[in-house]
Structure formats: C-alpha cells, structure tokens
Design a protein around this nucleic acid. Structure first.
Lengths: 231, 231
DNA sequence: TATAAATACTGACTTAAGTCAAAGGATTGT
DNA sequence: ACAATCCTTTGACTTAAGTCAGTATTTATA
C-alpha cells in the first residue's frame, strides 16, 4: 500500500549511500521511488521473485531469510531503519535471492532498478559509495561464516548480544542492557540454532552470572566474560 | 620475489573485471602492478597486515583463511587462477581481513590500492564491473551461510563436490570425476568440519555407491543422489 | 476480557560430529 | 634412499545440540 511521498529527502540524507548528494539529486531519487507500508508478517518479496529494485527501510523491522529444502530457515539479516537492503542483484541481474518479511508494521522505500542505474551512471561517486557498502557487508559475511564454522552456540549468542548492545549504544553503561524486538525464534535462526537450545543457553548464561533475562529484556551483568565468550 | 613483467596484458583480458579495457588502460594497470612468485606454504599476507592492494592469481592455488581464538581455522576461499582476491578493503579502508597462503608454487599480480583507485575514477565502467563482482560474491556468501546454518556435513560435502565438478567441466561425462589439488585437511576446514569427519563421510558416500575414492581422485558414480544430497 | 494462537520453557532421549589416541601412507628435504 | 614430517584413516569415547513431547506463558484477536 502506497503512502504520500512526504519530505523523505532529509531522511535519505542520513543514509551513507546518499549522504553527499545535493537536493537536486535527492529529488531525482525520490521522484522515481515509491514509499510503502507493510503490516506485520506481510511479505515484501519472495526468494525467486523478479527483481524490481532495492529497498530502504524507514520504520519497523524486516527479516531477510532463505528457506532450505529440509524446511529450516536461515535468517540472513534483521534489517533496522535507515538500512539499504536487496541491493545485491542491482548490478548482477537475477531475481531476489531471499525472502523479506515485516516483523512489525514497517515503512520502506522501493528504488527501482532501471531508474537508479541511470542515475548512478551520471553520478560516479555513488558507485564508489556502493562499493564501500558492499565491501563492508562482505566483511560482515566473512565474520558470520567464521562464526558458524568454528564457534558454539554460546559463543555466537555472546557475539550477537554484544552487537545488539553496540547498536543500541548502551555499552558504556555500568550494566548494558538490550530489549529484544524480535522473537527468540528469529534470533535462534539468525545465530544458527533452534529455540530450545537458545532458551537453554540463555539460562546457562544467567546461571553463570553473565546476564539477567526478564522476558524480552536482557541485562549484561558481566561484560568481560561476555566479551571473552565472543572471541 | 619479483619476476619479469612479461606480457601479462593478454592474461588480464581473461579476467571479467578487466575484459572491456583497451590496450592503453591495461598497460596502465600492468605499469603499476608487480608480479610475484610464491613458494609452497609461503604467506602472501597475514590477517591484520596493512593493506597494500589486491591480488590476481595467475598460477597455483591460494588458501584464504581466518584463525579464530580456539585455534581452528575457517577457510574462506580456495583461490584458483584468474581470480581476483583481497579486493574487499579497496574501498572501505582497513587492513587485510584474513590470511593468504600459497598451497603450491604460485604466481600472482599485486595491484596497489592507490594507483588502482585513481584509474577507476577515470574509468567509471570499471566501478560497475566491480559492483557486479562484489554482488556475485555476496550472493555466494549468502549461500555459504545458508549451508552452514542448516545442513549437515554430508550435504555440504555433496555441494562442494558438485561445485568442483562444475569448475572442472567434467559434469557432462557419464561418470564425472575430480582430482583434489588441496589436502583433505583444507577441504574439511572449507566445508566447516575436521579431517576425521570428512574421512568418515567420504567413506559413507562410497559405501552408499555415490562416489568412488582413490587417494586424491574421486569419481561420481551416482550424480542424481549427489544432487539430492546437496539440496 | 476471554479465548485462541503463537511463543517460550523444560525434561527425556537421540544423534551427528567432535576429541583423543594409535597406526599406516604419502611427501619432503637432506 | 632415508629419515622425518605431515596427511589420512580407523576405533573408542564424549558431548553439544537436535528431536519429540508436554506444559507454561505471552500475545493477538474476536
């Protein structure tokens, strides 16, 4: 469902990819883009759908995942606002390589492929920005693979918690905390395990005095040990 | 050890990234590049080294890997000739994110960062090529992660074998085969397991009549089942 | 707010894959 | 050609984490 193309130019400015564009260039992008609202659990696109363009999330949370043959789902990203996603097929061609679903009411911009490619050719600086963004993500993926191949659930969970705390900027506090805004099922899939094991691992961490779990809130009581576990 | 800057312009042409450059542009690249020879087991760079530039492998095999705290190594790529590697930090800054080691006598070109970045700014088409390359690799990584998170060793091994057969172009034969040119230890790390488990899994596949192993040669006797296992 | 549905937790059990140890093969260098 | 080192295989054992089943708790919706 489409909503009014409000003054989203200021919002786009906050996205690294567009940060150095001038008003005219931003106008061109908003002119070709479409803002849409998605209800909870609604799908933005499915794995294999014909590629239309990339998205920028303005509000809400999007889960990007892939279903494998045995029925399990691998969560690739949990997308937070002001993040660009589904931009990989822009240059390579091909269909959407994964499925995207809103985990809560969300608003996102769709920037169509063809229009954007014309723009980028007139604006070579943007290619370099995108290369930098792709590079950063390749590095993240590299780390994810390293984690999957050589660490146990408790180590991957520790790393996930630390990353969340960094994102939420509470890591400077005496007792950093975080509030999960996604289900534990999603987190389990994201760190490559199942809910039961996640539940037991959280309990184990609590028993060892590293964290305190209260429903969807987690307080870090021993940051040092958590850091050790993540390395 | 540096070797003569022979006529490698023709070789560069075979690399997608450079395929559409003219003679002058290729000359510029070879002018700033340095070709080096590496002995078996020699290191090209270590995880954390200051970034000098990216490499193109001309001959041999390079293992790119990361060591985690618990001593295990995660093999990220097994690089074959005419492949560009270590290009991720070009745009993002930062040091080498992994270690590269020659698995046999190898020859590679080093293209220095600064020189290449000047070139690319004068040659915007090359940014798009690189974006396409990065995009393809992000996709590959996505699949790797999906594999790691939701499949067992036998499935990951099946997928590895199929990929190798595709690369060696023997998949059209009645009985496709492949010759391992890396140790089983490396393959084990690459598919996220250890030698003992790899050994047992190969044996199991042989017992089930899917493959025939003879030292470093593997013949596929039941392509269909192998394909099933990989999905 | 009641009821259904989805999510989370716990226990008993199973299993894939890791660790440890020992021995045979293959490679490498001197 | 030899020793020395590294690679590979095999067996016995351990363990992390998955499956299954039952229950509790939270969240959504009529």
């Amino acid at each position: 469902m489409s909503i009014e193309p409000v003054a989203i130019k200021d919002t786009l400015r906050e996205i690294p990819l567009f940060s150095e564009l001038n008003i005219d260039q931003l106008k061109k992008i908003t002119a070709i883009s479409k803002t849409s609202k998605f209800r909870k659990n609604e799908f933005l696109f499915y794995d294999g759908d014909i590629y239309k363009g990339f998205y920028i999330l303005l509000k809400g949370t999007i889960k990007v995942f892939k279903n494998s043959a045995n029925g399990k789902e691998a969560v690739l990203h949990i997308v937070k606002p002001l993040t660009v996603f589904a931009d990989v097929p822009l240059f390579e061609g091909g269909n959407y390589p994964a499925t995207a679903q809103a985990l809560e009411e969300s608003v996102s911009i769709l920037v169509p492929k063809e229009g954007f490619l014309s723009l980028i050719k007139a604006e070579p600086e943007m290619s370099l920005k995108m290369l930098s963004g792709f590079g950063r993500r390749l590095r993240e993926m590299t780390n994810l693979i390293e984690n999957f191949s050589s660490k146990e659930v408790i180590n991957r969970l520790a790393e996930y918690l630390l990353r969340e705390i960094k994102n939420n900027k509470t890591y400077k506090l005496e007792e950093p905390f975080l509030k999960l805004n996604v289900t534990k099922k999603t987190i389990a899939a994201y760190i490559g395990t199942i809910t039961e094991t996640l539940s037991r691992t959280l309990k184990r961490m609590q028993d060892e005095g590293i964290i305190k779990v209260n429903g969807k809130s987690i307080i870090i009581t021993d940051y040092t040990r958590l850091k050790q576990l993540s390395e």
